[in-house]
Design a protein around this nucleic acid. Structure first.
Lengths: 260, 260
DNA sequence: CACTGCAACTTCCCTATAGAACTATATAAG
DNA sequence: CTTATATAGTTCTATAGGGAAGTTGCAGTG
């Protein structure tokens, strides 16, 4: 019983060891051991990690393996390494919080429970702002599309999109598969676009949007604007999603957890 | 001139080489070379990278250095490596877009141009929701704080915060430096919190908030909620920022650029 | 006391090598 | 034609070691 108490008092002084028979590679085990020490509070912001040579002896692994583990911790943001000084635990910073659009993509990928209703689709002359975004001559022709996306029968997203009308570009055909939305967003990814810019803002629902999304008014919503480019760096698609904030929430976490 | 044409036709067949005298490490140079080939469209989604052995010969570097470069590309999301098959360029996916709170932190760090006005600060009994968030007994005492943050004299943020009232915890004192806001968010980071949860939603401004932020009404805004924990995993602070979306915008980019 | 130089320690970079694990393809046997 | 087997190619893990570059502290010198 005396030993039991001692173990609890020094949970990490006893120390974990590397399991050479385990499935997990050695360097992954080492990363997780160190992460646990940070997550449990044994190592705190500002504390110095044991030197690489010490870690080699402590866990009986080669220098390269230790370096690899530490490199991973560095670009996970857990520690910072300063040449000649040492490696230190990084304090938690608010600015490191990041919000992914994964939840949005999940809606598209969740095929059986997601349906797309086409509200409008026609060829129009681009207004001034659209022409500027898509780098078209004023009055150039674009495809105007409005969609309503329902996730498990709940109206969740409005989508407005302007596509450059150019029959020579294959991207248009793929995108015209309006009911699946797989053209640009779904499945394995968008193989026809090279890159894109995105921005999120908060906005008021218009009367029309509130109707479609069955929202009381006035109501606030996310507006996710997108501008996509093809492999020649020419704009292809400009538009935005309108999304009720209670149907799609962005969450994040700062600080070190045991598992990534 | 004939050579000139040939170079343009095969811009990468000529091929870049590693500069052994450069300041940049070899593995970084290799990462950038491959990124450029993706960013310029020479390598496209689905294409297979040359094998590690080929890259070794092509650039005259050791296998470990090539592996390091490829590992970096993997967790930058540029390529995926499949054991026994090869390494392939990843298609661009909407869900990989990530929005950072760095812009929010920048406001706090921009000390000379940012001022904090204390609107309210008093000790109150926690209501039901606050008690639940902070894991307190119903009616437990909390510090209620309201702040207005001005960035270059423009009212930008409202902040509402509930702190557990416990004089034994040092976090309270630091946080009570209400005019600087450095206690939890500023400067080198928050050394008194171990981790925190964050979420963003879109909301309507209340009358009061619209007054403080000098906004027409009705108006939409971001609501960034936070819940912070100390090193014993006990809740310390719960609250939220209200932010006009035209004063703080979240932007992102998907796809590979030449420089990270 | 101030300054210099040296030694020890740290992280960082790169090389060279060996084997394990996995995949696809070709070949031989049934 | 189908099924095993072998082989070559791929990524992945781990080792050992040498040198470069930066920091710190201490002893020695002026």
């Amino acid at each position: 019983m005396a030993f039991e108490t001692k173990k609890v008092a020094l949970p990490d002084a006893a120390g974990e060891l590397i399991d050479r028979t385990a499935y997990e590679p050695v360097y992954v085990q080492l990363v997780n051991i160190l992460r646990r020490q940070v997550a449990s509070g044994v190592l705190r912001p500002g504390d110095q990690l044991p030197s690489e040579a010490q870690l080699c002896r402590r866990y009986s692994v080669s220098p390269m393996t230790v370096r690899r583990a530490i490199n991973i911790l560095v670009d996970q943001g857990v520690v910072t390494a300063e040449q000649g000084r040492g490696t230190f635990i990084r304090p938690v910073e608010l600015g490191t919080a990041s919000f992914q659009l994964q939840r949005l993509q999940d809606i598209f990928d969740d095929e059986p429970h997601t349906t797309v209703r086409l509200l409008q689709a026609r060829i129009v002359a681009a207004d001034e702002r659209t022409a500027q975004k898509l780098q078209l001559a004023p009055g150039g022709r674009v495809i105007y599309i409005r969609r309503l996306i329902l996730a498990r029968a709940e109206p969740t997203l409005c989508h407005v999109e302007y596509l450059v009308y150019d029959p020579t570009r294959p991207v248009v055909e793929a995108e015209m598969d309006v009911t699946s939305l797989r053209g640009l967003f779904g499945g394995t990814g968008a193989t026809m676009m090279k890159h894109g810019d995105l921005s999120v803002e908060a906005t008021l629902l218009t009367e029309e949007e509130a109707d479609w999304l069955q929202a009381a008014r006035p109501a606030a919503a996310f507006r996710i604007e997108h501008l996509f480019f093809d492999f020649d760096d020419r704009p292809v698609s400009w538009g935005w999603f309108i999304c009720r904030s209670d149907r799609l929430r962005f969450t994040s976490h700062i600080g070190v957890r045991e598992t990534d």
